[in-house]
């Protein structure tokens, strides 16, 4: 009598798959949660130092007990006024048209010409302020790090004051600050006046 074939040989082998559904549910829930909280608009900070604070930062570079490190007591007093007809740029406090007071008129469409302002300020930086005398650093009390910056022959060679008519919208002021901060020439970004101060329109 022949033996009956073993059941072990005929039984189908069950495949042991990992159940991915719970994992999929968790991942889908996380994606929904993150998409809900994610900010689609990228935001940034525009740092502004009021005049008194800017002067304090500048003075903190050279303690009074020590001899001044840089012989740059002169100031250029760069100022951009956002007028109804365009930008008025003044250097050394001049208000009569000439090399130290010029205008950047508004475009035919009535918009401010930020690109020309940047280009003219780049000329000022190159011709009047010139190359940096050297590099200095000052401790930033907020970040507790040393802020490194260039020193020019004018003590305020990195600063510019901005004034505007009372009704000038904040967006125009921000765009002017951007135009004064740096300029892109032939694909290279060049620093102009990174410290801007908002002042009362005179």
């Amino acid at each position: 009598m022949a033996f009956k074939p073993s059941q072990k040989h005929t039984r189908e082998e069950e495949e042991a798959d990992v159940n991915l559904m719970p994992m999929m549910n968790i991942v889908c829930s996380l994606i929904a949660l993150l998409m809900g909280t994610a900010q689609m608009t990228e935001i940034s900070m525009l740092e502004y130092l009021p005049p008194a604070e800017a002067a304090e930062v500048e003075d903190s570079g050279a303690p009074p007990s020590e001899a001044p490190k840089w012989n740059n007591d002169a100031t250029i007093d760069a100022l951009v006024n956002i007028a109804a007809t365009g930008f008025q740029v003044s250097l050394f406090g001049k208000t009569e048209p000439g090399p130290y007071f010029f205008e950047v008129p508004i475009l035919p469409g009535g918009e401010y010409d930020f690109q020309t302002l940047s280009n003219r300020l780049a000329q000022v930086k190159e011709n009047e302020i010139g190359a940096a005398l050297g590099i200095d650093s000052v401790l930033n009390e907020n970040t507790k790090r040393m802020d490194v910056f260039e020193v020019f022959r004018y003590r305020d060679g990195r600063e510019i004051s901005i004034t505007a008519l009372g009704q000038t919208p904040f967006q125009t002021v921000v765009a002017t600050m951007d135009a004064c901060r740096n300029v892109k020439i032939d694909g290279v970004t060049k620093e102009l006046f990174p410290v801007s101060m908002l002042k009362q329109f005179q």
Partner: peptide, 8 residues
Amino acid sequence: GTIDFVVK
């Protein structure tokens, strides 16, 4: 003294 404006 240190003012940061939030911008896009």
